[in-house]
């Protein structure tokens, strides 16, 4: 199968802003600290057409930055993002309309001073997907498809609830007729009962439109529910990647394992409190990551090698990659059985 979407060895660095005074000082020979942060550090993944890749990780792991790189909102420092073998960005400008994004916060992602119908119509008109004359009917059609009353197009965002706004944001993205939809925490700021509605809408539309998706979330249960494959990020790197159910049932990387264990799960058949296990320690600062494996300081399986070199992402099983020198023994066991 030809590669539909490819993120190839992408790195994104953020440099601290150097003030004029510091610049002069450094010219005069003073040492000015210019540590940069690699928010995304040499990350590669591929997506086949129609597939959904879930991207999970805690805050600061770079998943949102990776999403923006993939969406052509941010430029890569190194590496390329390719859609159908063509780069997504050229000279700081996005070259394609085939990738669209749904943002986390529907309160921030809609212009408060623009009627929602206009907001949905704007992109398609500007990119000649629909003529101005047909725009009204086109927008109404999309409103109906995302489960909104088509008569609401004349309203302003503040007249809608969070769930409705997210439907509008989805309509705006889909009205551009994308092939790849990037969802950056689309349900994180919604109420539980509304979350289910939006997830169902997403599943429905994905099937109807044969969308390829990159689904970014910190919520493991949501990612497990919607994605075919999942990639786990930690401090700018993908530490594990594989088929969703396999990763969730039998995690290879110690971080994945610990992350899964730390989520309180509803267990209904026991009369005791819901159990979970906490990972010890904190996420290291991305300004000064540990020398070897970034997870080493918190890892219960840590060995000598871990503190010296950063493990590469290697194939460890069927369609399965992990970046770890000492993969826990229970994974190997389960992997052989499978």
């Amino acid at each position: 199968m030809s590669l539909f979407f490819q993120v190839d060895q992408v790195t994104r660095e953020f440099h601290p802003k150097i003030s004029l005074g510091d610049k002069i000082a450094s010219k005069l020979g003073a040492r000015v600290e210019t540590r940069s942060v690699k928010a995304v550090n040499n990350v590669s993944f591929q997506l086949e057409e129609g597939q959904t890749l879930g991207l999970v990780g805690e805050s600061g792991c770079g998943k949102s930055t990776l999403g923006k790189l993939a969406a052509g909102i941010l430029e890569t420092s190194e590496g390329t993002v390719l859609l159908d073998q063509k780069p997504v960005m050229k000279d700081g400008k996005k070259t394609t309309t085939r990738i669209q994004t749904v943002f986390q916060d529907p309160f921030a992602s809609l212009d408060p001073r623009m009627k929602v119908g206009e907001a949905v119509a704007e992109g398609p008109i500007a990119n000649n997907l629909v003529s101005k004359a047909d725009a009204i009917a086109y927008v109404k059609d999309w409103f109906a498809r995302v489960g909104l009353d088509p008569d609401f197009t004349d309203r302003y965002p503040h007249q809608f609830s969070g769930g409705q706004r997210q439907r509008i944001a989805i309509a705006r993205a889909l009205a551009m007729q994308p092939d790849l939809l990037i969802c950056d925490e689309p349900v994180a700021s919604l109420d539980v009962s509304i979350q289910a509605q939006i997830i169902n809408l997403f599943l429905q539309l994905r099937k109807d439109l044969n969308l390829t998706c990159l689904f970014i979330s910190h919520d493991l249960s949501v990612v497990r529910h919607v994605s075919d494959r999942v990639a786990v990020m930690y401090l700018g790197k993908i530490v594990e990647e594989g088929e969703t159910s396999a990763v969730f049932e039998n995690p290879a990387h110690p971080y994945t394992k610990a992350l899964l264990a730390s989520v309180p799960k509803l267990v209904l058949d026991k009369d005791e409190l819901v159990q979970f296990e906490a990972i010890e320690g904190e996420i290291p600062s991305p300004l000064s990551p540990p020398p070897g494996c970034y997870f080493a300081p918190r890892c219960p399986y840590v060995g000598e090698k871990c503190n010296q070199t950063n493990p590469p992402l290697e194939t460890v099983g069927f369609e399965r990659k992990a970046a770890c020198f000492y993969i826990p023994a229970d994974f190997e066991k389960a992997n052989k059985q499978a």
Partner: peptide, 24 residues
């Protein structure tokens, strides 16, 4: 019941979730 059922963990992956209709 609706709150519990609408959790993604309560459904098979990829299947539609049981949703509470409407909004608060």
């Amino acid at each position: 019941r609706g709150l519990i059922d609408s959790l993604p963990a309560m459904a098979k992956p990829g299947e539609p979730l049981t949703q509470i209709s409407g909004t608060t």
